[in-house]
């Protein structure tokens, strides 16, 4: 038998959240955590969680598994059963709607804020805009983000300032457009991130990299943004000091 401890909260009936323990026979073959949840949901139809693709590409079922964020559908239970127990909690730092379902409004608001769409001033050609394979390669490791929020909700800076710190997921996308040879708003994009909070609240503790279910590296992207911002600032300082002389 294994004990699955699930964070429960229904706003209509519960004043406070609590943990409910479900004891279940350990499945004979290794299954994904989402499948285990589906089995539990047949016993208790009131357990609430999001799910869709069940193959790690839609980003619905991000949750906190034994203290670490991940996607239930691509986490084999063999990897997370510790002392015959699994602890499931909602993604940390966001308001809980019910059980394992969090309110992702703030997360999406940061995504919207970085203008996550290609901007190009020129009139598009009748065919595609050309891009060299080398330039296209620069988008690898960036565009694959599935917006599951595992990274941003594992980031203490995002917990503290979810309204002002853009967070690793949206910063990865900010850099995806900065790095795109077809985008002509690079300087505006950088300017929008140059305040003390948007990007500089990242202190490089790498929680985002540790949890990303798609093996992406927001920390690297954030580092790139910071270094462009700093080198631009240096250039500006030189121009200003030149002018003063």
């Amino acid at each position: 038998m294994i004990d699955v401890n699930i964070y429960r909260y229904n706003p209509e009936t519960d004043k406070f959240p609590y943990t409910q323990t479900y004891s279940i026979k350990k499945p004979e073959k290794d299954i994904m955590l989402l499948e285990l949840l589906n089995i539990l949901k047949e016993q208790d139809t009131s357990i609430s969680y999001r799910r869709s693709c069940r193959e790690g590409v839609c980003g619905s079922d991000g949750m906190n598994i034994n203290g670490k964020n991940g996607l239930a559908c691509i986490t084999p239970i063999s990897e997370v059963i510790k002392n015959n127990k699994i602890e499931l909690r909602p993604l940390p730092g966001l308001p809980v709607i019910r059980d394992l379902v969090v309110d992702m409004t703030e997360f999406y608001a940061q995504y919207d804020k970085i203008k996550p769409f290609l901007q190009n001033d020129s009139v598009p050609p009748t065919e595609e805009r050309l891009q060299t394979p080398g330039d296209r390669d620069k988008l690898d490791g960036l565009y694959e983000c599935i917006l599951c929020a595992c990274c941003s909700t594992s980031c203490p800076s995002f917990w503290w300032n979810p309204d002002k710190f853009v967070g690793p997921a949206a910063l990865l996308q900010a850099y995806r457009f900065i790095a795109d040879s077809r985008d002509t708003k690079t300087s505006e994009r950088l300017e929008a991130l140059s305040d003390p909070f948007s990007v500089y609240r990242c202190h490089g503790i790498m929680n985002c990299v540790n949890v990303c279910p798609k093996d992406l590296n927001p920390n690297h992207a954030i580092g790139e943004i910071k270094s462009i911002l700093l080198s631009n600032k240096k250039k500006q300082d030189i121009i200003i000091s030149d002018g003063a002389n």
């Binding site: 769409f117 595609e128 891009q131 394979p133 296209r136 565009y143 457009f177």
Partner: peptide, 22 residues
């Protein structure tokens, strides 16, 4: 073709050939 080129203009990160086409 019009619909696919529109998607490219919107930013879809298509893989590329050596000549830079989709």
């Amino acid at each position: 073709p019009k619909a696919v080129f529109e998607l490219e203009h919107m930013g879809l990160p298509f893989s590329r050939t050596e000549s830079g086409r989709i």
